[in-house]
Amino acid sequence: MIDRSIATQIVELIKNEGLEAGAHLPAQMLADRLRVSRSPVNEALALLHEKGVLTREKNRGFFVARPVVEPLSDMVSELGLVETSILTSAYFQIADDRLKGLLPGVVSEQMIRTRYGLTNAQVSAVLNRIAQEGWAERKPGYGWEFSPMLTTPDSLLKSYRLRLALEPAALLEPGYRLERKTLERCREVEKHLLAGGIETDTADQLHERGVRFHESLVEASGNSFFIDAIRRVNRVRRLISYRSMQHRERYVEHAKQHLNVLELLERERNEEASEELRQHLLHTLEALASIREILNSGPDDQRTAQPETTS
């Protein structure tokens, strides 16, 4: 079963990066960017080839057939990539149930299949996605075990303290250089959000755009240890991030703060940019009291709580 969300993300990457016809799309590069294995990427590339978005050359791989200039939503709809499938619905329901404590720490594929009305192929697809994102893994021999990471208040607080220590420091690394193209791409994303994307983007799109902003800033440090650490913590914070997207009011403020950081970096005022980023993350950390309430409360209480961690 092809995960059409991967194909959608590839189309979005072509648009956001301004890739022209003939640009090469190596499968491993895409797998690294999208934080998935090569198998679903290869399937998505083949699908986009069938739909005329990409060309394929023997022994060379896939290439952009034409630039994506139309609005992403129009392009995705035109290509039939809109994913309101049972697979996506089941994924978010599993995440929600896990956060509410309605799923045990260890589950069987049969339990997931029965509880969410999935086929064998759908169970495999959704559990593999969860495993790739780092919040569950297959047990030796039988069943799946959920990670406690980011489902307890203490682990969540620790993840944000790590980011608070790491991300501002990355901006002060010797030789820090944020490429002009990367800076402009990040800026356009924030402008898109302020122009209405906050209300219309999917949870996947919002999460990935936030992750790409913060990872892009750290990647510009050139410090492989910083880069590896931020990627690891972003993989495991996805679960709680989706919960926060039920309430998007604070995204406007966050987008403006992101733009302020970018403006300071553009002017090579890295110390000020580092402090601005520190304050941005500190504000999020201070908002974790509401997240603690969500994680410590029962399902009825959780429906009324309003988390604010969206950075």
Rank of each mutant, 00 (worst) to 15 (best):
Met1Glu: 13
Thr8Trp: 01
Ile14Met: 04
Lys15Trp: 05
Asn16Val: 13
Ala21Thr: 04
Ala21Ser: 15
Leu25Pro: 00
Asp32Arg: 09
Arg33Pro: 01
Leu34Trp: 00
Val36Ala: 08
Arg38Asn: 15
Val41Met: 05
Ala44Cys: 10
Leu48His: 03
Gly52Ala: 06
Val53Arg: 11
Arg56Gly: 10
Asn59Phe: 14
Arg60Phe: 11
Gly61Arg: 08
Val69Pro: 04
Ser77Glu: 14
Thr84Ala: 10
Ile94Cys: 07
Leu102Phe: 03
Gly105Thr: 09
Thr114Arg: 14
Gly117Pro: 02
Gln122Trp: 04
Val126Asp: 02
Ala131Ser: 09
Gly134Glu: 02
Leu150Thr: 11
Pro153Lys: 11
Asp154Pro: 01
Leu157Cys: 06
Leu157Asp: 07
Tyr160Cys: 00
Pro168Gln: 11
Ala169Cys: 06
Ala170Arg: 10
Leu171Pro: 04
Glu173Tyr: 13
Pro174Met: 06
Tyr176Pro: 08
Glu179His: 12
Glu179Val: 08
Glu179Leu: 15
Arg180Tyr: 13
Glu188Thr: 11
Gly196Pro: 06
Gly196Asn: 03
Ile198Phe: 09
Glu208Gln: 08
Val211Tyr: 03
Arg212Leu: 03
Phe213Asp: 00
Ser221Gly: 09
Gly222His: 11
Phe225Asp: 12
Arg231Tyr: 05
Ser244Asn: 14
Tyr251Phe: 12
Val252Ser: 07
Gln257Thr: 10
Asn260Gln: 12
Glu263Asp: 12
Asn270Ser: 14
Ala273Met: 05
Leu277Ser: 04
Gln279Thr: 09
Ala287Met: 11
Ile291Trp: 08
Arg292Gln: 10
Pro299Cys: 07
Pro299Leu: 07
Asp301Pro: 08
Thr304His: 15
Thr304Asn: 10
Pro307Leu: 10
